[in-house]
Amino acid sequence: MRNSAIAVTGLRKTFGDKVVLDGIDLDVRAGTVFSLLGPNGAGKTTTVNVLTTLMKADGGTVRVAGHDVATEAKAVRASIGVTGQFAAVDELLTGQENLQLMVDLSPIRAADGTRIVTELLERFDLVESAQKPASTYSGGMRRKLDLAMTLVGDPRIIFLDEPTTGLDPRSRRTMWGIIRELVADGVTIFLTTQYLEEADQLADQVAVLDQGHIVAQGTPDELKRLIPGTHVRLRFATAAELDAAARVFTDSTRDDEALALRVPGDGSSDSLRALLDKLDEHSLAAEEFSVHTPDLDDVFLALTGHTTEAVAQ
């Protein structure tokens, strides 16, 4: 418990008669990345809002940096930084002025402030646009400025609500790099995302939030172990071939629509060779052959019975 940066037990939150969070337990060790994963409307932002003192919980206890968010909001606020889902930058101010605003509002001495602003502009590659109003920034630049503003007071616990949603793959990688640097500095990160790959890449611990409940929690690898293992997918040209193959591989599952067969296997070269030999033996030829290791998308499907996409619709 001593090492917990964030400890949540039995957190409940309702809006009217709509139960958004229905008894959530979380524990985030200091210096690690915790990722809360869930589709649109799962309650990620609501969780972040409660954990960052912006909303009152209807039940349960939340301790952040050792302080109770309900009774010691000030102490909590002094130890956290928050980058919300929607960029919270001042559009009419320039990048530099935005950072200066954060300095002016925090108990930083003026001399240090100037240095901090310069350093952050450099670190986030915003020097060139520092004198331009934030309204002229691209989405990626705005996100970077937003995060830079969060870092002004050097918070030890940082909340990032969907930090890479809407970013192109390159900006996403830049953002991941920045997050990894923060972790290397010993900062605790609480990150929400809809991208399973992101959680896989960054998180030490992942919790899957679905309809107000945590439906699974663990390391990315532990979660992947929860679902059917590695398999080989064979796609055939005709239904007749699929039938024949299904008779040969008795432990397989078939997908008639795609004319495909899923054959369990561990993905090693020996098992693949054996499988190919068997195909040869029965004079079967697959149109397509691919090895699948489960990713968190599969985990999500298995745990919630729906894919992230389906819920997003």
């Binding site: 000030k74 002094a78 559009e91």
Partner: peptide, 13 residues
């Protein structure tokens, strides 16, 4: 209506 107010709140403004 823009996110900035939450930033101010978390900064104890």
């Amino acid at each position: 209506t823009k996110g900035i107010i939450n930033r101010f709140k978390v900064m104890d403004v």
